[in-house]
């Protein structure tokens, strides 16, 4: 059993189980035998240097990219190789590293679109609540492409909230945003945890990782190299060497 397996801060059976996952692009092994667990109601941080395979791992889990081999089990379902929409319908939602807007639709329509497949009843009320939660009411009728970069991050996060998913994958959701927007997102993540949602978040902001995450998973060169609470991770020499670049 590797460091990432078995030990989760969540309760009961892990909601996400990944075993020996592989994916390569040409000669590049983007994900090279990753195994990890994420417990229910856990907020897990996924960190690692650029090119370490974090976003590819998200693409594999969410079905955007098909793995070469390995297993992905989500909420009791084997999802490796399934279509992205089928995985989303099982209760998995995600954001993209570069905000993936429905540019020509309004902010409200972006949120409603997230409810179009599945939880449609009460969607308009939920969209209004989400706009309030993310402080986007004043741009509700604006086109998504007219929003600032930070607002686009918020809107994409809002779509994830609208999905009412049991597992959320957040890919650098606070990267490059104003501290006030980061605070809104951090508060919203806390609200998600209260309602029982599990979150796996890719993040480079160590302050946020420390404050938000129960457990950290560190990737390098397509592999999981360490996992554990933040304070243990920052004392791990391998992590220091590969991620922070200064040997102890």
């Amino acid at each position: 059993m590797s460091a990432a397996e078995g030990k989760t801060a969540g309760t009961g059976e892990p909601i996400l189980v990944v075993r020996e996952l592989h994916c390569h692009f040409g000669g590049i092994k983007a994900v090279n035998g990753v195994s990890l667990d994420v417990g229910r109601r856990e907020i897990a941080g996924l960190i690692g240097p650029n090119g370490s395979g974090k976003s590819t791992l998200f693409n594999l889990i969410s079905g955007t990219v098909t793995p070469d081999r390995g297993q992905i089990r989500f909420d009791g379902h084997e999802i490796g190789g399934r279509k992205a929409h089928a995985i989303a319908r099982l209760g998995l939602a995600r954001t993209f590293q570069i905000p993936a807007m429905f540019d020509n639709m309004s902010v409200t329509e972006n949120l409603l679109a997230a409810a179009a497949e599945g939880h449609w009843q009460g969607a308009r009320e939920r969209a209004a609540d989400t706009l309030a939660l993310l402080k986007l009411e004043h741009v509700a009728d604006n086109r998504a492409s007219d929003l600032s970069g930070g607002q686009q991050k918020l809107l994409e996060f809002g779509r994830v909230v609208m999905r009412q998913a049991s597992l959320i994958l957040l890919d650098e959701v606070t990267a490059g945003v104003h501290p006030s927007i980061r605070r809104i997102i951090v508060d919203a993540i806390a609200r998600l945890r209260e309602r029982g949602t599990t979150v796996l978040v890719i993040e480079h902001d160590m302050e946020m990782v420390r404050n938000v995450c129960d457990r950290i998973i560190v990737m390098d060169a397509g592999r999981v190299v360490a996992t554990g609470p933040f304070n243990d991770i920052v004392r791990n020499s391998e992590v220091m060497q590969t991620y922070l670049g200064r040997p102890q």
Binding site: H85, A93, F96, M105, A116
Partner: peptide
């Protein structure tokens, strides 16, 4: 209708539309 939202979503960003459960 919801159908229109799905169609316009896939027009604007197909992977994101798939990620919110739309069978594009």
């Amino acid at each position: 209708s919801r159908f229109g939202l799905k169609v316009k979503a896939l027009r604007d960003h197909e992977p994101a539309a798939e990620a919110i459960g739309i069978n594009t």
